[in-house]
Amino acid sequence: MTIKALSSAVLLATALLATPALAETIRIGATPGPHAQILEAVKPILAEQGYELEILEFSDYVIPNEALASGDLNANSFQHQPYLDNQVRDRGYAIESVATTVNFPIGIYSDKVENIADLPEGAKIGIPNDPTNGGRVLLLLEDNGLLDLTDGVGTAASVADIIDNPKNFEIIEVDAAQLPRVLPDVDAAGINTNFAEQAGLDPINDPILREDAKGPYVNVIAVRSEDKDQPWVKALVDVYHSDEIRTFVETTFNGAVLASW
C-alpha cells in the first residue's frame, strides 16, 4: 500500500469512527396526558444511551395492546396491572409487564353535587365500560357504603355483581375517554386521572370521592414476552425509574400522579 493510500484509509476510518451510530428506535404507545408527558421526559435521557423513543398516542385502551401484540409497537405505557391481566386472559396476548410506572387514583366527579352523600335517589352514575376501570369505580362506591357487591369479586367487579343498590343508582357504562364529555348529562362519573386532566378537571380538588393512592392499580410498561430480556427494555426501565423522572412527575403533576418506584 502506498503512503497516499494508507493516508486515505486512515482518514476514512477516522471519519467512520466519528460518525454517530444510528439509534435503535423503540416505538411505544401511550394515552395522551400524563403517560405521554412522562415519556417525553424519558425521551432525551434515553437518546443519550443510543435509543430513539418514538411515542404514539392512542385515545382508547384497546388498540395499544393490539398494536403491541401484533408487533406494530415495541412497548406500551398506559394501563394498570389488573387491566393488562384481563386483556391477556381474554385475548390471549403474549405480552407482560416489565416495570411499574405511576398511579392515578381514580375520582368520582359531579357538576350536580359537592358531596357523594348528596347524590339523589335514582342518580345516574357514569363508569368506564372496560372491565377493570368500571369495577374500580364500583369498588370505590362500595367502600363508601353506596353499593354492595358480590363477596370476593375484587378487581373483577362488574355491574352484574351489584347485589344491593339502596338508592337505586342507574349505572351507565361509557367509554373511559368520553366520560368527561358526558359529565353534564349524569349526576356523577368515575373518571380516570389522565382523561380528567385533559378535560381541565383538577384530579385532587374536584372529585367528590377519590380512590386511595395505595392499591392494585399501579400502571405498568408492557412488552411482548419474547422481548422482555432485550437490552432496550432494561434501558427504558432504568431511565423511567431514574431520579430525574421521579422529580419530573412530582413537580409536574403536584400529587395527581404518583411515582411507584
Rank of each mutant, 00 (worst) to 15 (best):
Q87D: 13
S260Y: 03
A188Y: 08
Y217W: 09
I208S: 08
I163M: 07
V159H: 05
V186K: 00
L140R: 09
D206Y: 06
T251A: 09
P216G: 13
P44D: 07
T251N: 14
V239S: 09
V182D: 01
L56W: 00
I3N: 12
A21S: 14
D185E: 15
W232V: 05
L11D: 11
E114H: 13
D227T: 12
D72L: 04
L46G: 05
P20D: 03
G92Q: 02
Y61N: 12
P64Y: 06
H80W: 12
L146Q: 10
N194D: 09
T14S: 13
E226R: 13
S59D: 12
Q87A: 10
H241D: 14
K124L: 13
V137N: 06
N192M: 11
L11W: 09
D111T: 15
G50Q: 10
Q178V: 13
K4T: 14
Q198V: 06
Y217M: 02
D175P: 14
V113T: 04
V186Y: 02
E54I: 00
T100W: 01
T252H: 12
L147M: 06
P203W: 07
D151W: 10
V88F: 03
E244P: 02
D90R: 11
G135M: 02
A176S: 13
F104E: 13
V98Q: 04
V239N: 10
A188E: 04
D238M: 00
I162L: 02
I116K: 05
P184F: 05
P128C: 11
Q230F: 03
K43L: 01
I245M: 00
I127T: 08
N205P: 03
